[in-house]
């Protein structure tokens, strides 16, 4: 998802403390910043929340790409508001991570040094306006499935950030679907563009949930600690099931001949995405990895003088106020 392939380590701390901690988790008590927690719980959360925050921020890039070229003033205003929301979501998540004893700047630097990741999905390009609609509808749609589940995560600040984000996120999915709807019901050329966007983005979207549970043995500890609440396959299935009626309404097709209602399971069957591609993207070999990281690093470095100047001004004013007292 927005945080993929996060592995939790086992812990070798005081068994009694660990047992009490697990009992709190099992009672669905939220863990708050100053409470005792296993070091591995803290580290896993920092990585997961940090990666989630980075995804929100890097996710602004493929969409920001189309702000100046939106087809109407209204679509432009909507896209601006959405991209601004993503910046806010990044901030909520960085704030949640900071309660665990890491600073936002440290996390940003780890990202820029390539030591932290963001979601694989944002390494795919947005080639035309239809992609912007498809990203809102499918990518944010997939994110919502994950984030609704994470509202029940065991760490209080993370859970609260998720609740806040979910409240704002459904606007994102709906505006995307609305944009695609207009194209799907437009001219044949517009409909073809919408279909092309779905063809390219469908498999990357379902990859967001991460590899199949049978492959990711490491998620077990995260599930026990309720850092993760539902399994990758479970979340992916929900996303597939909810998307089929949406695509049918549009009169478009999914690029997967394996989609079929399975009466016995009560779910749609679907084909696996190409996991080799997923691992390549994660390793930095996706179509846009280099550009995304360059854009982030440049924004950070080009903005340094503004941050430094404002901080110097703030300190000068504070010093003047102290002197006057």
């Amino acid at each position: 998802m927005y945080a993929q392939m996060i592995t939790a380590e086992a812990s070798d701390e005081d068994p009694k403390l660990l047992e009490e901690f697990q009992a709190r988790i099992d009672r669905d008590e939220k863990i708050e910043p100053k409470d005792w927690m296993p070091m591995a719980y803290r580290k896993t959360l920092i990585r997961q929340i940090g990666q989630h925050a980075h995804s929100e921020v890097v996710g602004q890039l493929p969409e920001g790409n189309w702000i100046t070229r939106a087809p109407t003033l209204e679509r432009k205003a909507i896209l601006l508001a959405k991209v601004q929301d993503e910046a806010g979501h990044g901030l909520y998540l960085y704030s949640a991570a900071e309660t665990l004893g890491v600073s936002r700047d440290e996390l940003v630097e780890l990202l820029h040094e390539g030591k932290m990741k963001y979601s694989s999905i944002f390494n795919y390009p947005t080639l035309n306006w239809a992609d912007i609609g498809a990203v809102g509808w499918l990518v944010d749609g997939a994110a919502i499935v994950n984030q609704v589940a994470l509202q029940r995560t065991s760490y209080g600040p993370y859970s609260r950030a998720m609740i806040r984000i979910c409240k704002e996120e459904s606007f994102h999915a709906r505006q995307g679907y609305h944009a695609i709807m207009q194209m799907a019901f437009g001219t044949p050329a517009q409909k073809a563009m919408a279909q092309d966007a779905v063809n390219r983005l469908w498999f990357p979207a379902i990859m967001m949930f991460g590899p199949s549970d049978s492959e990711s043995v490491h998620s077990e500890q995260s599930m026990t600690w309720k850092i993760k609440v539902r399994s990758n396959d479970d979340l992916r299935q929900q996303f597939v099931d909810q998307t089929i009626p949406q695509i049918e309404y549009l009169g478009l097709d999914l690029p997967d001949p394996g989609i079929k209602w399975n009466e016995e399971r009560g779910h749609y069957d679907y084909s696996d995405p190409d996991w080799t591609e997923f691992f390549n993207v994660i390793k930095g070999k996706g179509p846009c990895n280099v550009d995304r990281l360059n854009d982030r690093t440049n924004a950070w470095e080009d903005g340094a003088w503004v941050r430094d100047g404002l901080l110097a001004h703030g300190r000068k004013k504070a010093a003047a106020r102290t002197a006057a007292e």
Partner: peptide
């Protein structure tokens, strides 16, 4: 409602407006 980084109180209020009262 949450937290944020800002160089001084005035900017903190402006940022809070942008981040926590968009709706």
């Amino acid at each position: 409602v949450g937290s944020l980084h800002a160089p001084d109180a005035e900017m903190a209020i402006k940022n809070a407006r942008d981040v926590y009262t968009r709706r």
